[in-house]
Nucleic acid binder design. Structure first.
Lengths: 196, 196
DNA sequence: GTCTATATTGAGATAGAC
DNA sequence: GTCTATCTCAATATAGAC
């Protein structure tokens, strides 16, 4: 079988295990079983488990910075950002990878690099976007807004996927109504700016 | 040695291990070493590791609901809430326990119970508090506000403790300035209400 | 590339002496 | 309560045949 294909299947299987049972459930045996091969072959493709974890991260967030840039340059940046941030699979996976990075230096460095670049892109875009949304950057600086979006997405997804009875569906609905208001405000404000 | 004391020391040691290296680093051997006893004695006090994890949770959040109630009934509810939510130790510990609960049903049920009760108390208090802060519950319902506080605390603490270069210190400062504004608004509004 | 076999380490948990 | 000793299982990783 083609090596590239098997690599891909191993990474995909690992992602599924993480999503289903958490990062601590990942082992060469279990990944091998999911793909239908022997455990030692996992080590042929990924000599250490750390490299497998890093591959899972890269697969998910390889184009994360570019995607975030295009989201922020698109027609409804806030709505698109919220949608991307509150995607259950992506959010849960990142939470798990960050937790796993606790004891895996290679993974930690990679997560840190991506987190830093994403924040840089977000802050840069928000500097010009916030006034368009009618938000005063003196009151709500870019880092505040970025932290709020990311944090609320974490909280909602975690409660949803963990099955906590904290009314996360109501929270999600309220957040989306707020995004509606923001996008409507921006549409009004930018229309007026064009008219001037 | 007194049994209660040793139990307490085991739970405290487990908490330290979780905070330092994550929940996956907890093992009977490692906890025993931290306390200076044999691994088998850990199983004498906590027959299964699940019970040890639950004990860590109970120790931290045994009075969590009462504490949250008194925070919300205190003089500056938002400030106190933010301070409690953004405490690094508590936040990291809860994140790890929720992740560990992924594969530990007993722990999951206990976390879910506490999360649900906390949210109920928070929402109940916010119904009367939000107007005092000048926040329209139609725009920002209690579940929205509760999710925002908890989520932003998660995000800030995670970036701070993981050492991510996402400018979490600036985010924390901006959030605290916003809390200042909210508390000042409430002070003004409630003073006016008393004057009427 | 893929396998079998194995070295090594550590895990959770139990038995039984003291 | 606390220990030593041990069972059983699974982990990462490597060696070497094919």
């Amino acid at each position: 079988m083609a090596g590239a294909d098997k690599r891909e299947r191993l990474v995909a299987a690992t992602e599924e295990i993480i999503l289903r049972d958490g990062y601590a459930a990942v082992s060469s045996r279990r990944v091998a079983a999911a793909v239908g091969i022997q455990a030692s072959l996992v080590h042929y493709y990924f000599p250490t488990l750390d490299e497998l974890f890093v591959a899972v991260l890269r697969r998910r967030s390889g184009r994360a910075v570019e995607r975030m840039s295009s989201i922020l340059a698109g027609p409804e940046p806030m709505r698109a950002w919220w949608r991307a941030a509150s995607d259950p699979r992506g959010s849960v996976l990142m939470t798990e990878l960050i937790a796993a990075a606790h004891r895996r230096p290679a993974l930690h460095d990679e997560v840190a690099r991506i987190a830093s670049e994403l924040r840089r892109v977000q802050v840069g875009a928000l500097e010009s976007l916030l006034p368009q949304y009618g938000l005063d950057p003196a009151k709500f600086p870019p880092v505040f807004v970025a932290t709020a979006i990311q944090g609320m997405a974490y909280a909602v997804v975690q409660d949803e996927t963990s099955g906590f009875d904290t009314r996360p569906d109501e929270a999600r609905a309220a957040i989306e109504r707020f995004v509606d208001v923001l996008e409507a405000q921006r549409a009004g404000l930018t229309a007026r700016a064009v008219a001037d």
